[in-house]
């Protein structure tokens, strides 16, 4: 009962924020834009058939196959638009929730209820995820349906992107909440959580540098240290690879070669794209259990630290 009360409240608080509607509008625009694009056999059309792509003999649909279409949705829309812009907007929107909750006169009433502080904190933390749960499921659901009905591409594995996005958000949100509990400042929560996201990404990129420049592997201690360090923080970068794997979207390098045929590249570009493709293929095949498990461990530690601070404070 108490959990649901906080979750329902979290949902109401989310809907009260303008950013909630902005993100929703972005989702609807994307879905609408996808709807505008249609494929009729081997012909592509725009604006519900008002503008037709010419020359079916150009073999457009041959070069842009199922993998590339799903790839566009995953790599362009899911990762870039929702996975970056959307998540940043949602971090900004949710950063104020905990400081508002901890304000004098607000927290007093809640703490005086028969609910232990650790439980209250945990419920409030989960309630804060309601925002992104709603948005992620709407985004993935809408794009899934458009792909299915409009393009004839039914990709059930793509639906797993919704919980993956929630997971991605939660990796950063835990830092936001911890900072908010410590400082009671929404601005500090936004800045430090976004900063942490950048650090996570950089640390995660560390081992890839050794893949790109194999000569660096000679520095074994450094290589081992970088790999060990990369294990600790949440693997935010892995999320999109898991989404791509389960949606069978291929790699972003593959998508690039679909748009720009290899024949149009010079030798150096071809070599670079080959290296990128190899690295991405490795990433896609990574163990999701290890990646998500270690990331959740990090998240659990941060949440426990925040919970500890919350439970020990006087308000």
């Amino acid at each position: 009962m108490q959990f649901w009360a906080l979750v329902v409240d979290g949902s109401r608080e989310s809907r009260d924020k303008k950013i909630f509607w902005v993100v929703l509008a972005i989702t609807l625009l994307i879905a609408l834009a996808m709807l505008c694009i249609g494929f009729d056999g081997r012909r592509v059309s725009f604006f519900f058939g008002l503008v037709k792509g010419d020359a079916p003999e150009s073999g457009l649909m041959e070069s842009i196959g199922r993998t590339q279409l799903v790839g566009v949705v995953v790599w362009l829309l899911l990762e870039t638009i929702f996975g970056w812009i959307g998540i940043v907007l949602m971090i900004v929107a949710t950063a104020g929730m905990i400081p508002a909750f901890l304000e004098r006169g607000v927290i007093d009433v809640v703490l005086a209820k028969p609910l232990s502080r650790p439980k209250l904190f945990l419920y409030k933390y989960l309630a804060g995820l309601v925002f992104v749960v709603v948005q992620s499921f709407i985004f993935v659901g809408a794009t899934f349906l458009v792909m299915g009905f409009r393009w004839g591409l039914w990709v059930p594995g793509y639906l797993l992107a919704a919980p993956l996005l929630v997971l991605l958000f939660s990796y950063v949100y835990c830092v936001s909440v911890w900072v908010a509990v410590k400082t009671r400042s929404a601005i500090a929560a936004v800045l430090l959580s976004l900063g942490a996201w950048v650090v996570f990404a950089l640390v995660h990129q560390g081992p890839m540098i050794f893949e790109t420049f194999p000569a660096l592997k000679e520095y074994r201690t450094l290589h081992a240290a970088v790999r060990a360090a990369a294990w600790i923080p949440p693997k935010t970068g892995d999320i999109i690879y898991f989404a791509a794997r389960w949606a069978e979207a291929g790699t972003s390098a593959e998508l690039f070669t679909g748009i720009m045929p290899r024949g149009a590249m010079d030798a150096e570009d071809r070599q670079q794209i080959d290296v990128a493709m190899q690295i991405e293929e490795k990433e896609i095949l990574k163990s999701s259990i290890s990646s998500v498990g270690s990331s959740l461990l990090f998240e659990a530690v941060v949440v426990l630290l925040a919970m500890w601070s919350f439970a020990r404070k006087d308000y």
């Binding site: 009962m1 108490q2 009360a5 409240d9 006169g105 007093d108 005086a112």
Partner: peptide, 27 residues
């Protein structure tokens, strides 16, 4: 039952929802 000094409830709630929310927390 407790009414703190200078209490504040979330502005996005209606009066009835405030009562429902805090009563749910009070089981």
């Amino acid at each position: 039952g407790y009414l703190p000094e200078n209490h504040r409830f979330p502005g996005y709630l209606t009066g009835a929802r405030v009562l429902n929310y805090y009563a749910a927390l009070a089981r």
